[in-house]
């Protein structure tokens, strides 16, 4: 009985999914509006470094006397922005690549998929580190040359979105290709082909709508992966840089100043809570969506 109900009904009955959706909505609202609702002075460098949490500073202050609550919200904004847009880029690349490989088939398919296998074998983040530090100065120069000087501070974010999007698409391409292969031989596609529809029409009118559910599931699962990658890079000092913030950067800063003599626990605990809650919620939501929309993949 339950199998025949709509996916949305199944989702709304899954407490983990409902809770995750709630947490994510709160987190998203806080990330979008939070930093602007706080007084503008919160992000400024002051003399009051390492103040413990208090009523003025809910999460305490950091090395440079900046309010940590403000930094965590700003970090949420940037981490989520990079996560969502990076995932969208990878979504586009993966879906196009997978569709071409699956639809064309034959030799082209096996070459394209062999390439994906090869790329899987290469440590992605290590290349990202090199790629980002090579491209960032180039983009800065381009921005300066075209009168976009105001954007220079954000060049790292653009580069991160671009590079992460271009490296996270492998799984998506594999899944889409597999799906296309099984759809391609089904009757409705044969029917469309036999009445002489163009390849373009078959792909966009018949195949794509059938893929979208599955692709959306993997889009939700890519967002936390991109957020993690971004944090990894920022933690190592290659990603987002102050005065901007991302969760990885905050954790990296915290890991540097924490030592046995000075236990500045708040620098670590609050970013960890914000980041883990968001990532857990995204993973739960993705798993729930997968169970609801794609029962075959259930583990």
């Amino acid at each position: 009985m339950t199998e025949s109900r709509s996916p949305w009904f199944k989702l709304s009955r899954n407490p983990a999914v409902v809770l995750s959706a709630g947490i994510l909505s709160v987190a998203a609202l806080a990330a979008i509006f939070g930093p602007d609702l706080l007084p503008a002075s919160a992000g400024e460098v002051t003399r009051h470094s390492f103040l413990p949490p208090s009523r003025q500073h809910f999460f305490g202050t950091d090395l440079n006397g900046r309010d940590l609550f403000y930094r965590v919200l700003l970090g949420a904004r940037i981490s989520m922005l990079v996560g969502v847009t990076g995932a969208l880029v990878s979504f586009a690349v993966g879906i196009i690549y997978g569709m071409i490989a699956g639809y064309v088939g034959g030799q082209a398919d096996s070459i394209m998929m062999r390439l994906v296998d090869m790329l899987y074998a290469i440590p992605r983040l290590i290349f990202l580190l090199v790629l980002i530090s090579a491209l960032d100065p180039v983009l800065r120069r381009i921005m300066a040359a075209h009168g976009l000087g105001g954007l220079i501070g954000y060049s790292k974010i653009f580069i991160l979105i671009f590079c992460l999007g271009l490296t996270e698409w492998l799984t998506m391409a594999r899944i889409i290709r597999g799906q296309i292969l099984s759809l391609k031989s089904q009757q409705f596609v044969l029917a469309a082909r036999s009445i002489g529809q163009s390849h373009f029409n078959i792909i966009f009118q018949h195949l794509l709508p059938n893929l979208l559910g599955l692709a959306l599931v993997y889009l939700t699962l890519t967002v936390p992966a991109v957020i993690l990658d971004e944090s990894f890079l920022s933690f190592l000092g290659v990603g987002v840089q102050a005065p901007l913030a991302s969760w990885g950067l905050l954790l990296g800063d915290a890991a540097q100043v924490i030592n046995p003599i000075k236990g500045y626990w708040w620098l670590l605990v609050f970013p960890v809570i914000a980041m883990s809650l968001t990532l857990l919620a995204l993973n739960f939501l993705g798993d729930g969506l997968r169970d609801a929309l794609d029962p075959r993949q259930r583990k």
């Binding site: 936390p224 890991a255 670590l268 883990s276």
Partner: peptide
């Protein structure tokens, strides 16, 4: 699975070393 090493590491340091 959801905790990356750059979260787990500093947390372990905070608890078991500090």
């Amino acid at each position: 699975v959801s905790l990356p090493s750059f979260v787990l590491g500093p947390l372990l340091v905070l608890v078991f070393a500090i």
